[in-house]
Structure formats: C-alpha cells, structure tokens
C-alpha cells in the first residue's frame, strides 16, 4: 500500500512514519508532502491508498485539502493527525469526509485503533 503523510513539520512526518511502523503497519510505501496543496498534487497523480494529514498548515490546511479531494470525487481514506481534537473539530472532520482523527500526542496504540480496518497489518 502507498500512504501519503502530509505535515509542514519534517519531525512530525518522521514520527508519523515511525509510529506507523511501531503500530504494525510497516512495509508500506510512504510518500511525504509539506502542505495540503502539495498533498493534493500528489494524490491527483494516483496510486495512494491512505492520506494521513496534519490540520494546521501553511498554504493549504488539511481541512481544505480534504474538501478539495472530496469535491474532486476522490474517496481515498483520509485521517487527520493533529494537536487540535475538540469535539467540534472531530465533527467538522467527519462532516468533511474524514475517516478518523488521531490526536497529538499519540501512541502506536492510538494509530492501531484508528487504522483498524483501513490498512491490513503488514506481516
């Protein structure tokens, strides 16, 4: 599977990738983007199975990215990884078409729970 990790923080992209591996989702191809606009361009080329995106980013936010994907007709599974996780934002994410929201700080267990059913656990 091919996973797009979108975050303006290089450190956070690295930690998300590491946590995916710790959660048992190693072995997937990871591609990185630094904001929603770059993420949208990457997804438009096709081939991705999942998007994990920060919410608060310059240029294009994660929520704007999600809406642009859904408006374009893309149904790719989409999850937020964000420090902002109020019930209002979770509802906004769901209404926008997100599949899940992982709150920072996170653990491998929170990744495993959120991704259950979205990705097959790598052998």
């Amino acid at each position: 599977m091919k996973i797009l990790v979108v975050d303006d923080s290089k450190a956070m992209r690295m930690i998300v990738t590491r946590t995916l591996r710790q959660a048992g989702f190693g072995g997937h191809e990871i591609v990185e983007a630094v904001n929603g606009a770059e993420g949208l361009a990457a997804v438009s080329k096709g081939g991705f199975d999942l998007v994990l995106s920060d919410w608060n980013m310059p240029e294009m936010s994660g929520f704007e990215f999600l809406l642009a994907l859904r408006v374009s007709g893309s149904l790719i599974p989409f999850g937020f990884v964000t420090s902002e996780s109020t019930s209002a934002m979770r509802q906004q994410a769901t209404d926008g078409g997100a599949n899940f929201l992982i709150a920072k700080p996170f653990t491998p267990e929170s990744f495993a729970e959120a991704l259950k059913g979205v990705l097959a656990i790598a052998a």
Partner: peptide, 24 residues
Amino acid sequence: DVMGELANMIGGNVKGLFSGPCQL
C-alpha cells in the same frame, strides 16, 4: 521544527480546553 511542534501540541491541547470556537 521540533521546538515549534512541541509548542503546537501544547497550544492545540490548551485550545481544546475552551468551549467556544478558537483558531491556533
């Protein structure tokens, strides 16, 4: 990058303590 991300995480969680709409 790391120092900023730590502030972002604490700030994002502090923001969640307020009931009204806020931007970070």
